[in-house]
Amino acid sequence: MTTAMRDAWAQTLIDLAGDNPDLLVLDGDLGTSTRADRFAAAWPDRFLQMGIAEQNMVGVAAGLATLGYIPWLSSFAVFLTHRAVDPVRMLVAQTHANVKIGAAYTGLLTGFTGKTHQDVEDLAIMRAMPGMTVIAPGDATECAAAVRWATATQGPVYLRLARDAGPDLFDGSYVFEPGRVIPLRAGSDVLLVSTGPQTARCLEAAEMLATSGFSAGVLHVPCLKPVDAAAILAAARGVRLVVTVEEHTILGGVGGLVAEILTEHEPRQLVRIGIADTWGESASNAFLLDRHGLSATRVAERVARELAGVGSSAGAAS
């Protein structure tokens, strides 16, 4: 039985609040969607409704942090990384405030909202901010572990939460470590590097590729900043092709991250699959994943096509 990240986020905060008297949740009037309402029900005195005013909410969190509080923000990602990006930059990142950004409804799969509410640039924006830890969990278990780690760690954290439940990747023994990349499947032809719930779709795509005779590895990057660049380089050695796959623009997210690392240290061909510098739209999850080449089937097709175009030796650039 799978759990949605937002459910895991709220439940973990409820569980942590007892041992963390300074933990607060600030909501931008979306608590019934983000599940912050569950925290409010459990800990009414630790819940601060900030209304439809995200910039102020970020500033309030920064002020609370100066008094030793650990404020978690609850809103849709677009309102935190776009509308409120200036206070996030100045009052949180530049001051290294102990504010935790719980960014709900990320990527394309945001429940028929359309491009206005689909945050497909958030990783690029947050990754560019000095001092910001950027986390995109792959499942509810990893999400819960990241919430525990972020709450216990001083400094600003951006947590990218998917709306809908997806397949489980990890069991209860999972421990979040910032920067760690996680090999989930070994393969010798191609390495799929992914993040967030897209990793599960990559595992599915790897199965499909196997039936076509291609050996595909999957590397999960739950934390884009900091990140273990050496581990990414090591994983990329020995395969014919490296492909990044993300429910995010191909500019500045995992594609950008891996391109930067490879180009700087071991230049080679890279294929970036993601939202190709365009906007989303209102549609079903299946439609959106197919349209943007992110369903398991579309990823497998694209990778097979790309593999046909590269040489047989590792690292060969065509």
Partner: peptide, 10 residues
């Protein structure tokens, strides 16, 4: 003012 508000709430 937002930061001051947060401090006052705190």
């Amino acid at each position: 003012l937002a930061v001051g508000l947060g401090i006052a709430l705190g």
